[in-house]
Every structure is written in C-alpha cells, then in structure tokens.
Design a protein around this nucleic acid. Structure first.
Lengths: 188, 188
DNA sequence: CGTAAACATGAGTAAAAGCTCGCATCATAG
DNA sequence: CTATGATGCGAGCTTTTACTCATGTTTACG
C-alpha cells in the first residue's frame, strides 16, 4: 500500500499528472492493477491518499521542529519566532519538493484549499498574542485581514523560494528576505 | 473563431478543465467539431489560444490605465505609484475572474511561467529608479531579490484578494493591505 | 449563371485508460 | 494434508474522447 503510493509519487514526478495512469502506477509499484484496486477504489482516491500522506509527513516534520511555538508565552521577540517558523516551513517544503510542486501545480483541483490546513488558526493565535499589551510588536489594524495577508504572502514566498527560485539565487538570502517581508508588514 | 474561444471559456468555467471536451466546446459554440478543428489543430492549442487572448485582454486593460508609469521620472512618490499599480492589477484580474481562476488552478501546466510575462522587467526598472539618489525611498539590499520577492508577494495577494477572498472581507481593505505589505517591505 | 475555392457538417474511427472479474496462489488453522 | 479465507493476478471489457474525412453548403467572382 505504501509501495503503491511511492510508485504514484514517482510516476507523478517523472511523467506529470496528465500521464498518470493506474496501469503505469501498478507497473511502477511492481504489483498488478487488480491489487491496486484492492486498496484504492479509484484513481482519484489514489492521488488523494498520496497527497494526505505527503501533508502528514510535512506536518510531522514541522511539528517536531516547532514545539517552540509555546515560547510565545515567554517574551520571545517576534522576529525570532517568525525567523524560526519560516525556516521550519522551508525545510518542510524541501522534503519532497518535486512531488510538492506537481501536487500544487498539476493536481491543484484536488489540492486541499489553503484555509483548511489549520495554518491560519495557529497564525491567528500568534498574531493575537503579539498584538496585545503596551509593548506590542504587531501593529496591524485588523487581525483577520493580517492573518490572511501574512498567510498568503508567506506561503507564496516559501513556495517560490523552494520550488521555483530565480536562477543563481542564494536560498539563505531568499529565506532572510521572506522574514524581512513578513516582519516589515507586521510592524510597519 | 472568437465564438469558439468564448465557448471554451464558458465550458471551462461551468464544468472545469477535466470536463472540457472538444465536442462540448463545439456544441456550446453552436458549430460542428469539424469546424472547430479547422481553426485549432488540437485541444491544447485551443486552450492555449484562449489563455493568450485572456492575457492580451488583461494586458490591454492594464496598459490603458498604466500610462502613468512614465510619471516615475517626475518625482511621484513611490507609495502613489504602488497604490495605483496594484489597483490597476486588481481591476485587470476582475475582468474574467472565474476564467482566470480556472486557468491558474486547473490548467496550470499550460499556464505561462511567472517569469515570462514581462512583469518582472517593468518592476525591476521601477525599483531601480526609486532606489537611486540621496532621497531614495527603496532601501532593499539586493534589487534582483527584491524584484523577485515583490513580484511573488504582490501576485499572490492580488490573486487571493480577487479570486479567493476570505468570507466577509472588504475588497478595498484587502487592496490597501496589499499596498501596505509591498510598501513596508520596500521601505523597511 | 457557372465554377471553384473556402468553409461547414457530423457520423464514424481508433486509441487510451479506468476498472472488472474469474481464476491462481498463499497463509492459517484444524 | 485439507479446507477456507485472504490476497494477488492480468487479460479484456467498456466508456470516453480527440480527431478524420467524405460530403454538403456558401461565397467570390468573371
């Protein structure tokens, strides 16, 4: 079953979504189509399962690295938190970048909508903490809008930096500038 | 010929890319499949032609509104320019938002890459102007990186604001915050 | 009016691909 | 060893769909 998902990922990356056939997956996995259909009711379920597994892997990696989010309680400067968060997100996106790119670009109609991955909730809570009190670092007028803007901004920049960087660009520079962009917006 | 492209757009928006068949397009256009194939060699060319026409329409609308770009020569403040540019871009994206969304999401593998649409060149030139002289407003360290970051950031926020806004959000607010984000990054 | 070129038609073709189903093989238990 | 259930197999069925082509219709023009 995991072997079938692995094969699906390989075919997707090698040939693209348009050329993804259940027979090709079965061959790549070294099993028969019959067996494939014993585990997945149809092609869509196959790709969906792969996507879910991939999201799970990325989430697991992020959560392992990101226990530090609790530190928000203890006066950690906003910039340190943003820096670390964006770094972790970039590392997670580098897990299987080719697969991630195909899923995001060619299987977008099956891709989970941006809102339902729980990210916005966490982000919103963070912004709320840092916008309270006399020495609040976050100075945006509307927290809901800010959550939306930062979410989209960071997501786009992380994707661009990891999956589609300009030729000859230093990854570290792109990461630093992503942090700068988010920080500048939040504390302008 | 234009009627066929119109029909393609209608079917794309109504049924999505997966359900786009040449026969369905012919029916929607009120012509026979034979006629369709007299104008377009194959299905891909059909969608490509539609995309090109759509990009042309958007570009035309932007260029009409954006003669003001020459004003960069004459000491117009950066913020005014950014505000106007982002406004124009948003208006252009509202031309055929549903079609634009489908093309961007479901036909992404045919979609022109972000780099080849000429936007980056214009943006780069603008940033260069505003980062020169003693009263330079743009204070980023690397112009190439800044072009990349601003391009992706603005593109993502415009798409999000026009095609996928959060429920109950005010379009004007989203536009203002997009300007704020770009300005904050450039002048941080 | 005649001719020819351009355009329109839609039933039909052929290939692709998702999926089924009857049969074989294997694992476990008694 | 035998029985039974679970799992694996892959030829082929069926549907879908991009595309063709022989024929009909309109247009252009002398």
């Amino acid at each position: 079953m995991d072997a079938i998902l692995d094969a699906t990922a390989r075919v997707l990356v090698r040939d693209g979504y348009a050329a993804l056939t259940t027979n090709a997956v079965a061959v790549a996995a070294g099993v028969s189509i019959g067996s494939l259909y014993q585990y997945f009711p149809n092609k869509e379920a196959l790709v969906l399962a792969l996507r879910e597994r991939h999201v799970r892997h990325m989430s697991a990696l992020m959560m392992r690295e990101a226990a530090f989010w609790d530190a928000a309680e203890q006066g950690v400067p906003l910039e340190a938190l943003i820096t670390r968060t964006i770094h972790v997100a970039m590392v997670a996106h580098r897990l299987e970048p080719a697969l991630h790119k195909v899923l995001a670009l060619e299987a977008a109609h099956l891709e989970a909508r941006h809102e339902e991955d729980g990210t916005e909730g966490v982000l919103r809570a963070l912004l709320e903490r840092y916008s309270r009190g006399p020495d609040a670092e976050v100075t945006v007028p509307d927290l809901d809008v800010a959550t939306f803007v930062v979410g989209r901004m960071a997501h786009a920049l992380i994707h661009a930096a990891v999956l589609d960087p300009p030729p000859g660009a230093d990854p570290h520079t792109l990461e630093r500038e992503t942090v700068r962009a988010v920080m500048a917006y939040l504390t302008a």
